[in-house]
Amino acid sequence: MKKILKKIASPLQIIVEESNTIKFYGVKNKNGLFSNFYQSSIKLKGKVWQTIEHSCQAQKYTGTAKEEEIRNFPCSGTAFRLGRKKNKQYPLRNDWKSVKDDIMQEAIKAKFTQHDNLKIILLSTKNHKIVEPTERDAYWADGGDDKGKNMLGILLMKLKKELSAENKNEDEQI
């Protein structure tokens, strides 16, 4: 049986699985606001990005025409495909593997701090585990079998903890 947390400052609802886990995959499915494809523009590095997906895919090609091509593309799905498409003209940045988690964390923080309704919803997830369940990705998601790294979920939970601590400190100062 599924439990629904109350609606908070938004028409969006969070659905918690029996295992006290919040699962999300894609923007049109339950809990889709946690997806990087969710339409919520962010300001980052002096630019406006339509979605986290646009920002993170483009950062693979920082300072090139491909970065701007990805940033300006109207569809996050195509931005995803452009970011993964390798070619000799726009090679993947050399340090991508070592910086991708920090780039993702920065984009997630922008999304959930620049949109108050999303911040409230993230904080409302309390101690629930956040997981992206898909066999399509064993790094950012759980690999479909809970054996993947689930780095996107881990980074969301890390941000939730950080924002919760900040709120607690602000409350204590009042």
Rank of each mutant, 00 (worst) to 15 (best):
Q57W: 00
H54N: 07
K43H: 15
W96A: 04
L5H: 11
M104D: 05
N36S: 09
D102T: 11
K111C: 01
Y25M: 08
K30I: 07
K43E: 09
N117R: 10
L12C: 03
E106S: 08
I8Q: 08
Q89I: 03
Q50L: 06
Y61F: 14
N94E: 13
T21Q: 11
Q89R: 09
L33D: 00
P74A: 07
K23L: 10
I120W: 13
G26D: 05
W96N: 08
L118R: 06
H115L: 02
K45M: 08
K43G: 04
Q13C: 09
A9E: 06
I108Y: 07
V99G: 15
A79P: 09
N72G: 14
Y61I: 00
N29W: 10
N36H: 08
T64K: 02
S124K: 00
K88M: 02
N94Y: 09
C56R: 15
Q57I: 03
N127G: 02
K23A: 12
G46L: 07
I108M: 11
Q105V: 01
K45H: 12
S19V: 03
K28G: 06
K111F: 05
E18L: 12
L82T: 00
K109A: 11
T64F: 09
L12K: 15
R71M: 00
K126M: 05
K60H: 11
V27H: 13
K43V: 11
D101N: 13
K43F: 10
A107R: 06
L92M: 15
K111A: 02
G26R: 03
F112D: 02
A107I: 02
T78C: 05
G83F: 06
L82P: 01
I52V: 14
L92P: 04
Q105D: 10
V27M: 11
F73N: 14
K47C: 06
I8S: 07
A107N: 13
V27Q: 14
K119T: 11
T113V: 05
S10T: 15
G83M: 05
G32M: 01
K119A: 06
L122S: 09
M104L: 09
V27P: 15
N29K: 11
M104I: 05
Y90A: 01
T125I: 00
L33Y: 13
N29Q: 10
G77V: 05
F37S: 08
A110H: 03
F37V: 10
A107T: 03
A58T: 03
K86P: 05
Q57S: 13
K97I: 01
A79W: 02
I120H: 15
T62L: 07
I103V: 15
I42S: 09
R81A: 11
C75T: 04
F73K: 13
E67T: 00
A79R: 03
S19M: 04
T51F: 00
K126G: 00
K47L: 08
H115Q: 04
K7M: 03
E68Y: 03
I42P: 11
E53L: 11
E17L: 05
S55T: 05
K28R: 09
I52A: 02
L122R: 04
N36Y: 06
F34I: 08
V48T: 08
K23M: 09
G46Q: 14
C56H: 15
P11M: 02
Y25L: 10
E18C: 08
A65W: 01
L5S: 10
V16W: 11
I8R: 06
I22Y: 01
K119S: 14
Q105A: 12
K7S: 04
Q57K: 10
